[in-house]
C-alpha cells in the first residue's frame, strides 16, 4: 500500500512531471546522477518546497490541503550535514520539543540516543562530536516526533566506510523495529543495493524508473543500465 504518491509533479526547471508512489513500511532509495532532482524531491515530501504543478498526496490526502507544519512533524528529515544548533547534545535532541515550548524528558532523550547507538553525555557540547556521532544525533532527533516517514538526505556522504556500514545497520534495524517508511537519497549504488526495498531512479528531474532493485537491474532501459554499470550518463 502506498503512503505517498506523486502525480505529474513539476518544480521550476528542476523536476518534470514526476509520477510515482512510495510503499508504506519499506525503504525506498532515490538514486541518480548529480542534478537529478533527488534533494528537491525529498524537500517536496515534507513540504519544504511545493510543486508548481501536479499533486503530492500523503495517505491519499493532497499535501496542499493539509497543515504543512503538522505534516512536517509526521515526516521527519535528516540532513546530509546534520546541522546542529549551538549548545549541548540535549539542546539538539530536545529541539523538536523546545521549538513548541515543551521539553523532552531526559530519560526519553537517553533512550533515543541508545536507540541510535550513541553513547555520549547529554551535557556534551555538539561541536565536540565526530561526524558519525553528529549523524546519529541527527537521526535520533528525527525520531522524537515518532514520524510516519523518515527522509534521509545522503546522511552517510561524508563518513568513512566503517561508519557508513554502522549507520546503514542502524537504519535497517530501526526500520525493522519501528516499521517506519524510509526514503533515502544516496549517490552510492552499492549502498542502494544493500538497503533498498524499492528504488526511484531520477535523471535530469525526471523519474526514469521505479520499483524493486532487482526489477531495475533487469530493466531494458538503456539509461538505467548505463547508470547501474557506473557509466557517465
Amino acid at each position: 500500500m502506498s503512503i505517498l504518491t506523486f502525480h505529474e509533479v513539476s518544480y521550476q526547471h528542476i523536476l518534470h512531471e514526476i509520477t510515482g508512489e512510495f510503499r508504506e513500511g519499506v525503504i525506498t532509495t532515490l538514486v541518480g546522477p548529480s542534478g537529478a532532482g533527488k534533494s528537491t524531491t525529498l524537500k517536496h515530501i515534507n513540504g519544504l518546497i511545493s510543486p508548481d504543478r501536479g499533486e503530492i498526496c500523503f495517505r491519499g490526502e493532497p499535501l496542499e490541503q493539509m497543515d504543512l507544519l503538522e505534516v512536517r512533524k509526521r515526516i521527519g528529515m535528516a540532513f546530509q550535514s546534520a546541522p546542529m544548533i549551538p549548545g549541548t547534545v540535549y539542546d539538539n535532541i530536545n529541539l523538536p520539543k523546545s521549538i513548541f515550548g515543551e521539553s523532552l524528558p531526559r530519560e526519553e532523550a537517553k533512550r533515543l540516543l541508545q536507540q541510535v547507538d550513541l553513547s555520549v553525555e547529554l551535557e556534551r557540547t555538539v561541536k565536540d562530536l565526530s561526524g558519525g556521532e553528529r549523524s546519529r544525533l541527527g537521526i535520533a532527533r528525527t525520531l522524537v516526533n515518532r514520524p510516519d516517514v523518515l527522509l534521509l538526505d545522503e546522511i552517510t556522504a561524508s563518513l568513512d566506510y566503517r561508519m557508513v556500514q554502522e549507520i546503514e545497520k542502524l537504519i535497517l534495524d530501526l526500520q525493522q523495529e519501528l516499521q517506519t517508511t524510509i526514503i533515502w537519497i544516496t549517490h552510492d549504488l552499492e549502498q542502494a543495493k544493500r538497503v533498498s526495498d524499492d528504488v526511484w531512479f531520477l535523471k535530469d528531474g525526471r523519474l526514469i524508473e521505479s520499483g524493486a532493485f532487482k526489477e531495475l537491474a533487469s530493466s531494458d532501459q538503456a539509461e538505467t543500465q548505463a547508470f547501474l554499470k557506473g557509466e557517465s550518463i
Binding site: L48, L69, R72, K73, F79, M84, I85, L95, N145
Partner: peptide
C-alpha cells in the same frame, strides 16, 4: 540556512526558525 530549514522540517514556524 541549514538550521532554519531544519527547524522548519521539524514543524516550527518561520519566526521560530529564524529566531536565533
Amino acid at each position: 540556512d541549514e538550521v532554519i530549514e531544519l527547524i522548519l522540517s521539524l514543524g516550527g514556524d518561520a519566526k521560530t526558525a529564524i529566531d536565533t
